[in-house]
Design a protein around this nucleic acid. Structure first.
Length: 405
RNA sequence: GCAGGGAUAGUGAAGCGGUCAAACACGGCAGACUGUAAAUCUGCUGGCAUAUGCCUUCGGGGGUUCGAAUCCCUCUCCCUGCA
């Protein structure tokens, strides 16, 4: 079969929103959809059975992390990512491009992926100010965060590794820039990303040819749009990549929710309409999701639901709460009485509070089940609202409640 | 009973004449986290005041000293030897 099939079934008039289906060798994803983050071939704290039960349609893993551990060859030997992690549905891999940034410039500048923490004193930056990645036109040299060993990643190498890992949908190897980067650097990184995109396409096609020869499925490749917050560069990037033979597109380098109605819109307006668009790394909050869909995003991925769950923050229709707060010690109601997840059906806030206080692993699992269910089902509800023409009512309801305080 | 040692904030534990409202750890309270170097990180944690500040603390009581958690006396309790 073709690497990927994308069909748009419904559109919301006056917007860029659409509902459809992406079909891969491992099944169909009804879009818009939230793709669950499974960086190291595991959705942290969850089993595949949990992911399935909470409604996850696909998982996104990371090439950089898997090349270091356990190594792409090991995953290939296991029969590919899905077989290795016992996930039979569709899979994505990110190219390692994000780590060019997160292990590179982000540390040098003392900022993290969320550009609002530019004080240089918070979160990642304090971890270790040492830069672990350096970029040239040829590729990127990383020092492993695990053991300090040196690794080299080029567009070609990323393609080879992603084919070995064997996800259904791959990302082109890109370089994203900080919103604070100087315009000339953004330009340079974008041009480099475009040159890399063409190299990715070439190597990807060769590898797919080999797959076909071996009687295996072809794999899909998304080009990744960059250009920071500059409209002309974003449109140029979308134009450039949109004219190439990609199966879909990732939109990278989006950090702030308010960039969705600007940056994302410039890109989706420019990209070919008939191919899927994935918003890389964004989509934890209702606003991200509603606006993303409204401006033409088909799939999202975000690590925040599981990361925040591990740190005791859980989502409710009335906003986010911290289950560790003293007020939940004897609150014997579920996180949300309206939630259908396994956690809310069976456990109370007081119990979760206790698990987190006691540092019990089950807390992370139950909170992760809830947060992933919350986001996955919200996107599913948004999809339904698109089909039934009730998108704006649903959006208004959610904004009214979730952001009321 | 005799001889030593010890009692410090919620807990453990530094400090042994002024720079001590008292290190540090844990605990407690809150916050952050968006292609996962994240089960992580940050702030606060005697009382009052937004801040330089003021007030009450280092087992109890009494002294010495300009000044005491730190020195002396005494009481209480604990621990270790010897009876």
């Amino acid at each position: 079969m073709k690497a990927l099939d994308f069909v748009i079934s419904d559109r919301l008039p006056g917007t860029l929103a659409r509902a459809g289906e992406i079909t891969t060798a491992h099944g169909t994803i009804r879009t818009p959809a939230f793709i669950v983050g499974g960086t190291k071939a595991t959705v942290k704290a969850l089993t595949p059975a949990h992911i399935e039960e909470l409604g996850g349609q696909a998982v996104l893993a990371n090439t950089y992390h898997l090349m270091l551990q356990p190594g792409a060859a090991t995953i290939q030997q296991a029969g590919g990512l899905g077989a290795f992690m016992h996930w039979s549905k569709p899979t994505f891999t990110d190219s390692g491009g994000f780590q060019v940034f997160s292990l590179g410039m982000a540390y040098k500048k003392g900022i993290d992926a969320t550009s609002h923490s530019t004080k240089g004193d918070s979160t990642l930056a304090t971890h270790n100010a040492q830069q672990l990645a350096t970029v040239t036109d040829e590729g990127v040299t990383f020092r492993s965060h695990l053991d300090g060993s040196t690794h080299h990643l080029t567009p070609e190498r990323s393609m080879e590794l992603q084919h070995a890992i064997g996800a259904d949908i791959h990302m082109a190897f890109d370089e994203l820039t900080s919103p604070l980067a100087a315009p000339d650097y953004v330009r340079r990184a974008m041009d480099r990303t475009h040159a890399w995109a063409e190299r990715c396409l070439t190597r990807h096609a060769e590898l797919n040819t080999e797959h076909v020869k071996d009687g295996q499925n072809e794999q899909a490749l998304y080009g990744v749009v960059q250009g920071a917050r500059d409209e002309s560069m974003r449109r140029e990037s979308a134009q450039f990549l949109g004219s190439r033979e990609f199966d879909g597109f990732g939109i990278g380098g989006v950090f702030e929710p308010d960039e969705i109605s600007s940056v994302v819109r410039w890109v989706t307006e420019t990209l070919p309409d008939d191919k899927p668009r994935h918003l890389l790394g964004m989509g934890a909050q209702p606003a991200d999701l509603f606006l993303g869909v409204e401006y033409g995003i088909d799939t999202f991925d975000c690590v925040a639901p599981t990361r925040q769950a591990r740190n005791a923050a859980v989502y409710t229709p009335d906003g986010r709460i911290n289950i560790l707060n003293a007020k939940f010690k004897v609150d014997f109601s579920p996180i949300s009485s309206e939630c259908g997840c396994y956690t809310c059906q069976n456990f109370t806030k007081a119990y979760l509070h206790h698990l987190f206080k006691a540092d019990e692993m089950l807390g992370a699992t139950l909170a992760s089940i809830h947060n992933e269910y919350f986001v996955v089902h919200l996107v599913d509800a948004i999809r339904d609202s698109l089909i039934h023409g009730t998108f704006f009512e649903l959006k208004a309801q959610w904004f009214e409640r979730y952001y009321k305080t």
